[in-house]
Design a protein around this nucleic acid. Structure first.
Lengths: 219, 219
DNA sequence: GTCTATACGCGGATAGAC
DNA sequence: GTCTATCCGCGTATAGAC
């Protein structure tokens, strides 16, 4: 049991992180001032800098926390990291692993991404705001899209290698899939009275991405 | 011909708007300071306020310009406004108007949206930044998504009314379609060395949204 | 109509007491 | 370790000369 000083410091740091998450969600990351965080944590302004060098550094710390608990949750299971657009838990249904043309597996993949974002909405949303604030020409939007969808891309590439025709380049299709997922998450999850349930969204996305608007009997 | 004073004022205003568009694209809307705009326009700082009340007001003016030239371009043609996610020109191919299950028509709809965004990237991107800066809980992301995809939603609803099965609620599916379109536009269009051509992106999106990753012979 | 000069407020960041 | 008090830089917005 670490005594007094260190313990209290960790307590304060946790309070700051917690307050930050709340503020990021309510006011938005960009609009949140250092003083908003310290005030919400019930501490004085100056304390912030005893724990974090800047608001960006704090966000990185929150991101690290998210990975840590994400990795812990995955641990013994499948592959992949708990990234933005994907990050998978256990997803094996029948013979072929990670076959995205199998409805159950596709849905499972989407669900993991959705749940990750749902559980870490303040951090995910903050990262999104940060990327947008970097401006269009920074290229961060595209980078974020491609980095967050490695799993999709890999599975699609495998599919393609197996001879399955895709709508386009695996990277591009994967980015498109990640884009819908994260755009809808960012738009819907924070809403007060949610118009669509998680299941409804996931079912819709699964069917749309699997068979398109034409539906299963297109050929 | 308006004499001297008025003419010069319009010239200055145009210079400010033009400089703003350039700056918004390069630095991003949020990062652009009033002084960046006036400097890029080769004018003094103070002039800005003789023409616009604020940066937000300027953006609204740019948006109005966009609509104006958009409406002019459409004019005698089809329906719809030149909004974010859609806004259509002429799209009739065979019997059924606006049948999104027809590949050519779907592609045409997507193309109009893509081209609108391409042609007005600084404004569209700025609006996006503004919406994101409003924070997650503002609900602006969802509003923007639904408002920008009225055309999609209506066409999907019509399809549904005709007895065609959809992946989900027309509003939700339409939002998803608009989301991919604008997310990819925002991510790809500003890139210096574009990895994918317009046609490549449009073909991929068309096939993905029409038949999904399973492809046409799914049944 | 446009310029230069300046005042104002806000938020980030630090110093030093407790 | 945490607090109070304060400084400083930046960007907005205005006032008044030209």
């Amino acid at each position: 049991m670490g005594t007094a000083r260190k313990e209290k410091a960790e307590q304060t740091q946790a309070a700051l992180k917690d307050a930050a998450r709340r503020q990021f969600l309510e006011r938005g990351y960009l609009n949140t001032k250092i003083t908003d965080i310290t005030a919400a944590a019930g501490r004085a302004t100056g304390v912030f800098y005893d724990h974090f060098a800047s608001k960006e550094a704090l966000l990185q710390a929150l991101l690290a926390d998210m990975y840590e608990q994400g990795d812990a949750a995955i641990a013994a299971h499948g592959h992949g990291a708990a990234g933005d657009g994907d990050g998978n838990g256990e997803v094996e249904v029948d013979g072929r692993d990670h076959d995205l043309t199998d409805r159950a597996q596709l849905r499972a993949h989407l669900a993991v991404g959705w749940q990750t974002m749902s559980a870490n909405l303040p951090v995910v949303a903050a990262l999104h705001e940060e990327a947008v604030a970097a401006g269009p020409s920074s290229g961060r939007a595209w980078r974020q899209l491609t980095e967050g969808t490695e799993a999709f891309r890999d599975h699609l590439a495998a599919l393609s290698a197996r001879g399955h025709g895709l709508p386009g380049a695996p990277e591009l299709v994967g980015a498109a899939m990640g884009a819908v997922l994260s755009a809808l998450a960012y738009a819907l999850l924070p809403l007060p009275g949610r118009p669509y349930s998680d299941d409804e969204v996931l079912d819709t996305l699964t069917d749309l991405l699997l068979n398109g608007i034409a539906g299963p009997d297109a050929g």
